[in-house]
């Protein structure tokens, strides 16, 4: 594997960033774990390859990656483990082909979730982004395939998008290794807590659903104080998600989100 760093001259195309050391599959000890989520065929595996120097198969059709792959890199002296996931359209449905990705995003505790999207279909991709932001605070939005978008005369106002979503937004062309350095910087900022995200949360659910969620959230928060995403848990329970229901029943939810069991939890005064 390519373990050497090199100077960030434009000629050095395989090294997108000066401080990046691709570690291939070496990921014994890592400081942070990064998950690559996103719709199918948006270039997740290509981003993964650019960061790790590995050669995950890529292909221009949705569903190329079906199992999760892991790799490592180090940036600015920190070790990262990065997980490439199969594409998903949504976290809200129960399709078995998307289970691997869904489970990892929900229960894998990545330190940072990088959402890779196709710049030419931003609206469609935002569906998943908004769902991920319901679950986690630590996310980076990587708007990939920006070269294609430009070719089609589409331009994206990254600053405004960043402001709307409350998380860092990076425009990349992963196949050309453009924007990878900025992506790394954003990942490291969010992972280390230097940059605090204020993610966009859904606002326009139908009123009766909002009420139901509100009612449950209040109870869930009393039983599991400190749960970071009680809203999501409530939503999933309302949809009859077996995984969530059994996690509540067995109290597993506590471990899933590393919440210490406080004596007398649930007895708020």
């Amino acid at each position: 594997m390519e373990n050497q760093t090199c100077s960030p001259t434009p000629a050095c195309r395989s090294c997108p960033s000066a401080n990046l050391v691709k570690l291939g599959e070496e990921n014994q000890n890592f400081d942070y774990m990064i998950a690559l989520a996103g719709n199918p065929n948006t270039g997740k595996s290509t981003v993964f390859n650019a960061l790790t120097g590995l050669r995950q198969h890529t292909g221009n059709w949705p569903g190329k990656t079906v199992t999760r792959a892991e790799g490592g890199f180090s940036f600015d002296g920190r070790q990262y483990k990065i997980v490439d996931l199969p594409g998903t359209y949504s976290l809200l449905s129960a399709s078995p082909d998307e289970e691997v990705a869904r489970d990892f995003i929900l229960f894998g505790h990545p330190n940072v979730t990088v959402i890779v999207a196709d710049a030419t279909r931003l609206e469609r991709n935002l569906n998943l982004v908004l769902q991920v932001l319901e679950i986690t605070d630590k996310a980076v939005f990587c708007v990939n395939l920006i070269d294609e978008a430009r070719r089609h005369g589409i331009s994206i106002d990254a600053a405004k998008l960043e402001e709307r979503l409350g998380i860092p937004v990076i425009l990349t062309a992963a196949r050309q290794r453009k924007g990878i350095h900025e992506l790394l910087q954003a990942i490291s900022d969010v992972a280390s807590g230097q940059r605090v995200c204020r993610p966009y949360r859904l606002q326009n659910e139908p009123p009766e659903l909002k009420e139901a969620i509100h009612h449950l959230v209040e109870k869930i928060e009393r039983l599991f104080p400190g749960l970071p995403n009680a809203r999501w848990v409530a939503l999933r329970v309302l949809e009859g998600d077996k995984r969530m229901i059994s996690a509540i029943q067995s109290g597993e939810l506590r471990q899933l989100y590393n919440i210490p069991e406080i004596a007398g939890a649930g007895q708020t005064t």
């Binding site: 359209y89 949504s90 809200l92 449905s93 129960a94 399709s95 469609r124 569906n127």
Partner: peptide
């Protein structure tokens, strides 16, 4: 069921 959800996932 799944069909309906898949359609909605596809937008």
């Amino acid at each position: 069921g799944a069909e309906r959800r898949r359609l909605m996932d596809l937008g």
